[in-house]
């Protein structure tokens, strides 16, 4: 498929979304303008309404350019160390995300190895690993944060643990599938080489499971970010993208909410993109790229 065939449809859809967004901004913010005008005893024309809806301080729906202006203000024009810099908040969230993702992936791989090599673990652990995911961990994030704070663990780790809880699951499922993916004839071949279990693992099963690992890691890193953001909600809105969301909703700062959302989206895109890039490079070097 050529570049034109993929880029043009996407750009068209994005253009339509932006157009709808502007229209919705006018429609949703017009009421406030009309109310203000009525209170002042003035009448406003349609063009005045449109002009006003584009630049309100606390619009119901900020126009795209307002969000972009806020993003520019809070990233480029503020010092990174400033509490009002979005980069500072994004870094707080990112560090929790990465720590949680690292712990979650390690834990997931270890559990998968255990499950693949021990029948008892397979039969007893697997149903409960699935059951853990029916517990809405995001819902109990506040309790985990508060309880861990009470026993003296605070800062990065509690948030990271929520990310861990969310991210280990796709890794376990993907790795179990991956470690079992080598065909029986390949295992037989290893046996004819008189390979030990250890050698079979490192030379056959582990390389064979890498494509599965990377696909799982893409999912895991995305939900790690969600976990870190939700983990920041109950900390009393101190720092991080989640805290920005919460503070914005308390004070009706819609532009702040939207810019935090866009930052989170950009962060998610970059993280998933990096894992995707690692995926491609690794598979290429291993000669598995298609």
């Amino acid at each position: 498929m050529s570049l034109r065939e993929t880029i043009i449809p996407i750009l068209t859809v994005i253009a339509v979304i932006v157009a709808i967004w502007y229209a919705a901004a006018v429609w949703m913010n017009a009421q406030w303008t009309l109310d203000q005008a009525e209170r002042a005893g003035q009448t406003v024309t349609f063009t005045q309404i449109v002009a006003d809806t584009m630049g309100q301080d606390r619009p119901l729906l900020p126009a795209p350019h307002q969000v972009i202006a806020e993003l520019w203000n809070t990233t480029v024009e503020k010092k990174i160390t400033s509490k009002r810099s979005l980069i500072y908040h994004a870094w707080i969230t990112l560090s929790a995300t990465l720590l949680g993702f690292a712990i979650g992936t390690t834990l997931g791989v270890l559990l998968a190895v255990l499950i693949v090599h021990n029948i008892a673990a397979d039969k007893s652990l697997m149903p409960w690993i699935i059951a853990t995911q029916t517990i809405p961990i995001l819902a109990i994030a506040p309790m985990i944060i508060v309880v861990l704070n009470a026993i003296g663990i605070s800062g990065l780790l509690p948030k990271a643990l929520i990310s861990t809880y969310l991210s280990f699951f796709p890794v376990v499922v993907g790795m179990v599938k991956g470690l079992r993916s080598p065909e029986p004839y390949l295992l037989d071949l290893m046996r004819t080489y008189n390979a030990s279990g250890w050698q079979t693992f490192w030379k056959l099963k582990w390389p064979g499971s890498l494509p599965y690992l990377f696909i799982s890691m893409k999912i895991a890193v995305a939900i790690s970010l969600v976990g870190a953001i939700v983990g920041e909600l109950p900390t009393g809105a101190i720092a991080g993208l989640g805290a920005r969301l919460l503070a914005g909703s308390y004070y009706g700062q819609t532009i702040q909410i939207w810019s935090a959302l866009f930052m989170a989206a950009a962060l998610a895109a970059v993280l998933v993109g990096i894992v995707g890039l690692l995926h491609r490079i690794t598979l290429k070097r291993m000669g598995m790229a298609r």
Partner: peptide, 26 residues
């Protein structure tokens, strides 16, 4: 439309959509 919406849909699925909660409450 499929070629336009699918990559976008895949992208949005990876986003922390839960963040729109304060906006929806508003």
């Amino acid at each position: 439309l499929q070629r336009g919406l699918l990559p976008l849909g895949n992208f949005v699925s990876a986003l922390p959509i839960i963040g729109i909660a304060p906006i929806m409450v508003m």
